[in-house]
């Protein structure tokens, strides 16, 4: 009996994970199958959906616009996140570091949808910012800070910033502070030390944070859905609209697969860049 149990135990342990993986693979293969049907309820195999996505300028716009939003939001998160990560590890006292870390943990533990609703409460028409602006008499009417591109950009950055900070924090924490001290002893001004020593050493973390943040932004659904007011055309919303609101699964599936391929391309590109950089650095 014990021998039998020993034999089957590994299978029992991996079975739940395998079932999950099998379901995911089934889902993806079903998506692939749907994307090659010729119409919303078609039965004929064709490339019609892909042709339609590539030929129609309006559809292409969803992809180019999502890429643009993802690039800008990632860049903003990097610019905002780096000083925080740097401060946490280099400047902050252990107590301050704990406070910042606890704040980041709080963000991770809170629900994403609730965080987006929180932004509406702050930036919405009757939100805190507009109420303060009205009270101070600096605005004639409510500022339009939500339900447009600006609102979505704020939401995307707010969503990815914690991931960027933690990715950067990992590499900043491993920096050898003796290198900075040596540079200072040799008369290097702080900005030069940052540009020539700190920043190059942080590149792996920057690439990791960029990859994670970019993919989260590119695939974002909740943020444009809640904060876009129907005016911000991101691919995930388009996929939802086609597959769910219009019951056009083939077109939605084809768009989902193109988004998947785009995401994969970004991962590969950033990995190649990272490898090249590391090889150069190791030389």
């Amino acid at each position: 009996m014990i021998v039998m149990l020993r034999k089957i135990a590994p299978y029992l342990l991996v079975a739940p994970a395998l079932l999950l993986i099998a379901s995911l693979v089934m889902g993806l293969s079903s998506l692939l199958g749907w994307s090659f049907l010729d119409g919303a309820s078609g039965n004929v195999a064709s490339f019609a959906q892909y042709e339609s996505l590539l030929a129609n300028g309006s559809y292409r716009h969803y992809f180019s616009y999502s890429l643009w939003l993802a690039v800008i939001s990632t860049a903003i998160a990097l610019v905002l996140g780096f000083p925080v990560a740097y401060y946490m590890e280099v400047v902050a006292s252990p107590k301050q570091r704990k406070i910042i870390f606890a704040s980041l943990l709080g963000i991770f533990l809170s629900d994403y949808v609730l965080r987006m609703f929180g932004l509406i409460l702050i930036l919405g028409r009757s939100g805190m910012v507009n109420r303060v602006a009205g009270w101070l008499g600096i605005a004639d009417g409510p500022w339009k800070l939500m339900y447009n591109e600006f609102g979505v950009m704020v939401g995307l950055v707010a969503g990815i910033l914690p991931f960027m900070i933690l990715s950067l924090n990992g590499v900043v924490a491993r920096l050898d502070k003796r290198l900075r001290e040596a540079a200072a002893l040799l008369g290097s001004p702080p900005w030069r030390t940052f540009v020539s020593i700190t920043l190059p050493l942080c590149i792996p973390g920057i690439l990791a944070g960029t990859m994670l943040s970019f993919l989260l932004s590119l695939n974002s659904f909740v943020t444009p859905m809640l904060l876009g007011g129907g005016r911000v055309d991101m691919v995930a919303v388009f996929i939802f609209d086609q597959a769910i609101n219009l019951a056009n699964l083939p077109l939605g599936s084809a768009a989902a697969l193109i988004l998947f391929l785009l995401s994969a391309a970004v991962i590969i590109m950033l990995n190649v860049l990272g490898d090249r950089y590391l090889k150069r650095f190791q030389r």
Binding site: V14, L18, M26
Partner: peptide
């Protein structure tokens, strides 16, 4: 090979 067999069994069960 065992893993592939188990995955195939899982997929069949899912279907």
């Amino acid at each position: 090979r065992d893993l592939i067999k188990a995955a195939a069994a899982g997929t069949t069960l899912g279907w």
